[in-house]
Amino acid sequence: MTGTRSKSFVLWAIVWFDLILLSLPTIIIIGASFTTGDIVQFPPEGFSLKWYGKLWLLDDFKAAFFRTLYVSLICTAVSIPAGTLAAIGLARYRIHFQTSLQVYLLLPFTIPLVVSGLGMMIFFGDIRILGQLWPVGISLCIINLPFMIWAVSASVNGLDYQLENAAANCGAPPLQGFLTVTLPGVMPGVITGALLMFILAFNEFLVSLFLTDARTVTLPVSIYNSIRSVITPDLAAVSVVYIVIAFIAVLLLDKLVGLELFLKSK
């Protein structure tokens, strides 16, 4: 085996510190959401589910929740074809300016979110679609598109191209080869990417802050607005909704493709 006892001690000490750092906010929020008191404090005052009960009575919360769901679904639905096709195009076809195109497709990452958000706010305002909900979904797809392309690229690069050649050799026309060989082969990447896109859109805050108004506010933006005023325990309950959704997404990702996928070397 590699290493000594001191190695394992030092490394695990740092990792345990990481683990505390990573999970502390989550644990504290869950704890705070069960308080019986009217202010957020820790340790919580007593134990009750009253803030969860109140949650379902809040029409604002429910409306914001469903709006967030709606934009996240649009984001996912648009990014699946766009990202999958782009990843296959980049990995499987001879393309001029390959590097330039890659740099271009990384623009959503290299342009700061605050600038992307403002730019789209001005542009959407100019073509008079600002204030509607569907452009928010599209914008969330744009800013996170590299994640989708990444996820599918990993799968395409792992897929033996001889399979596609074999299909063509056996007489499969282009579309059939694509639909019955390439697409099923890259499915793990598509699923990973789609889940990532959904969860990132569900959490996205800054671009949504620019593109929504009081009528179209999404959940992360409304949490942000509440944080800036009085912090009440119902916010902790809302946050727990996020924690639960994140937990479901992690389990789903693990079940469908396995989290170990992210450890694979390129």
Partner: peptide
């Protein structure tokens, strides 16, 4: 280790910042 990593990753910045406010 993977789950402990992905959970906060999927929870998002606003909720995590809120957690720090409580702490």
């Amino acid at each position: 280790l993977l789950i402990s990593l992905f959970l906060p990753f999927f929870i998002g910045q606003i909720v995590r910042a809120y957690g720090w406010l409580i702490i």
